[in-house]
Design a protein around this nucleic acid. Structure first.
Length: 422
RNA sequence: GGAGAGGUGGCCGAGCGGCUGAAGGCGCUCGCCUGCUAAGCGAGUAACAGGCAAACCCUGUUCGAGGGUUCGAAUCCCUCCCUCUCCGCCA
């Protein structure tokens, strides 16, 4: 949610910044509604004030056994007027909120400008593309001969896009999740969280999935709950409607959850094997910070996610998303992409974003400053650390051998607790 | 799923139609006092919206949520949500 107050005072600037995301927002209509809301509220305020004074007088008169019927009648009429204005206000406020919840977070100044992913900027690259003296297999071929996944049976259980991990594939998945969590807890002092994944509507609104992206979410009809598409949803909502202490910031959480995405409208794109699935596993990092420190925290968050890739020895690059490629709620975002030699593609395994106050406003997540005791919205950030499916793709493709087995170097084997898969 | 009890400030807890944004206590902040600490004494201690992108101040709203009754609701009525206890079921 953007700040109405700021919008009111810088409408042109705000409109320009929002349009960088490729969204057209009718700012003047929003301001008209805002003006209406404030004028109606003002009227209501005045009438209530009058009614309160009158009611007080009635109370006093009754105590003194005086006749107050005339005042009662007058006050009753005030009540009727009030009801009708309140009715109008509800209507206008609803309209205003409906629009406000669909306005994206404007990008930060440092974000490269552009309309689509072609304008994204590669910030840095780590490692090199591995060379193979034999013809490489891709992850589905490796998975088939080594019995790591069973996509046919996964589809039998749940439909396409629901991978069934088997044998060493299942073990690799589990070890990866555990190793990554332990890394973030012990090396970076993040607190481990194991949250529920069925979410109330309010929780989905906080982080920005609703109301705009309803069709991308799995929803349970009877209980009206949504399956979280990322641990960002439960973990960010931990502090919904709370006032945090500045001295407790930054708050740093790491959580593993399965993630559920309908991926509506993306059929046919990268759907092979593990590249794009409806259910996957992800270890997520979430931070609550002050506004002053959030961009430093974004850099360290990104570095922290990268540290896993360095341990795993995977060739990767850090990409700053351009304004047009940024997600709805983000003000700035770095994607981590790893090289998959069998697929011969860069695969996104992490998005590290600063949402500034956008989610905090929606979820009413605030902090009290040490200096002047004033209350303000926190900045929220999150980043994958990391999502497993594409990570597994790059891992097995990178460490495949000419005989079709997988051999991890010692450092990687130490981290995973698995030396080879054959 | 069935029966009962309950949801009031940061926390505990009183109030059950008007003088209650809310007694009392705990905690916290500031001051006084005091060899030090503790104790004691005094004062202060919600959020949000608008007036008004500021301070003081003023007005309004908020006692789980939403509706209703009433001139007036924390208090009465209805619906829903949540917590606890017991029973049933169950990994």
């Amino acid at each position: 949610m953007i700040s109405l107050k700021q919008l009111r005072h810088n409408p042109e600037e705000y409109g320009d910044r929002i349009s960088l995301k490729g969204n057209d927002v009718n700012i003047s209509f929003v301001l008209t509604l805002d003006e209406k809301v404030r004028s109606l509220k003002h009227q209501i305020n005045e009438i209530r004030s009058e009614r309160n004074r009158a009611s007080e007088a009635i109370g006093l008169a009754k105590q003194n056994n005086e006749d107050a019927s005339e005042a009662i009648e007058k006050t009753r009429e005030l009540g009727h007027t009030l009801k009708s204005i309140e009715f109008d206000l509800d209507d206008v406020e609803l309209q205003l909120n409906e629009i406000l919840y669909t306005i994206p977070n404007p990008p930060h100044d440092s974000v490269p400008k552009g309309q689509n992913e072609a304008s994204n900027a590669v910030i840095r690259e780590w490692g090199e593309k591995p060379e193979f003296p034999f013809s490489v297999k891709n992850h589905t071929q490796l998975g088939e001969t080594l019995h790591l996944f069973d996509f046919q049976r996964g589809a039998k259980l749940s439909g396409s896009g629901f991978p069934l991990y088997t044998n060493k594939g299942a073990q690799l998945e589990r070890q990866l999740i555990n190793a990554m969590i332990m890394h973030h807890v012990s090396k970076f002092d993040f607190m481990e969280i194991f949250p529920p994944v069925l979410m109330k509507k309010e929780s989905m609104i906080t982080t920005g999935q609703l109301p705009k992206f309803e069709e991308d979410m799995y929803h349970t009809e009877v209980d009206n709950l949504y399956l979280a598409p990322t641990a960002e949803v439960p973990v960010t909502n931990i502090h919904r409607d709370e006032i945090l202490k500045e001295s407790d910031l930054p708050i740093k959480y790491v959580a593993y959850t399965p993630c559920f995405r309908r991926e509506a409208g993306s059929y046919g794109r990268e759907t092979r094997g593990l590249l794009r699935v409806h259910q996957f596993n992800k270890v997520e990092l979430v931070k609550f910070t002050t506004p002053e420190s959030s961009y430093d925290e974004l850099e360290s968050l990104t570095n922290q996610a990268e540290s896993i890739l360095q341990i795993l020895g995977l060739h990767y690059r850090v990409v700053a998303l351009c304004t047009g490629d940024l997600s709805f709620a983000a003000a700035k975002c770095y994607d981590l992409e790893i090289w998959a030699p069998g697929e011969e593609k860069w695969l996104e395994v992490s998005s590290c974003s600063n949402f500034e106050t956008f989610q905090a406003r929606r979820g009413n997540i605030r902090y009290r400053k040490d200096s002047d005791k004033k209350i303000d919205f926190v900045h929220t950030l999150n980043g994958s650390g990391l999502a497993t499916p594409r990570l597994v793709v790059a891992l097995i493709e990178t460490y495949q051998t000419s005989s079709g087995t997988i051999q991890f170097p010692t450092s990687v084997a130490d981290f995973l607790g698995i030396e080879e898969i054959k």
